[in-house]
């Protein structure tokens, strides 16, 4: 069944021929140069597993950034005693200012 499609495609592409045979044979007879080795290394494709990598990044961010961003701001001032109870001084001053 496939052969009809192949025949048709071969007919349509009958003018397409591989014309670089001599170049291939010449390259094949020459030793690999350092430049080519470097180029091969540079063009080497590597596969990065996206899911594990993304998971690692999320975990790392959660452990480092989140504790700082969610930390409750602490009052800067000291503690004052009012009627036997202890309060943050700047909170007390803030409430007094609002009451005024």
């Amino acid at each position: 069944m496939n052969s009809n499609v192949k025949k048709e495609l071969d007919y349509e592409l009958r003018d397409e021929h591989f014309a670089s045979k001599e170049i291939v044979l010449e390259k094949n007879s020459q030793p690999v140069t350092i430049k080519e080795r470097v180029r091969d290394l540079w063009n080497k494709e590597i596969e990065i597993p996206v899911v594990p990598l993304a998971t690692s990044i999320v975990i790392a961010l959660t452990m480092t950034v989140v504790p700082y961003t969610t930390k409750t701001p602490q009052p800067k001032s000291g503690i004052v005693e009012i009627d036997g109870s202890y309060y943050w001084q700047d909170r007390v001053e803030e409430l007094r200012e609002n009451a005024d």
């Binding site: 495609l9 071969d10 592409l13 397409e16 021929h17 591989f18 045979k21």
Partner: peptide, 8 residues
């Protein structure tokens, strides 16, 4: 043997 078919 394989040049033309690979090229196409």
């Amino acid at each position: 043997t394989y040049g033309d078919e690979l090229k196409r």
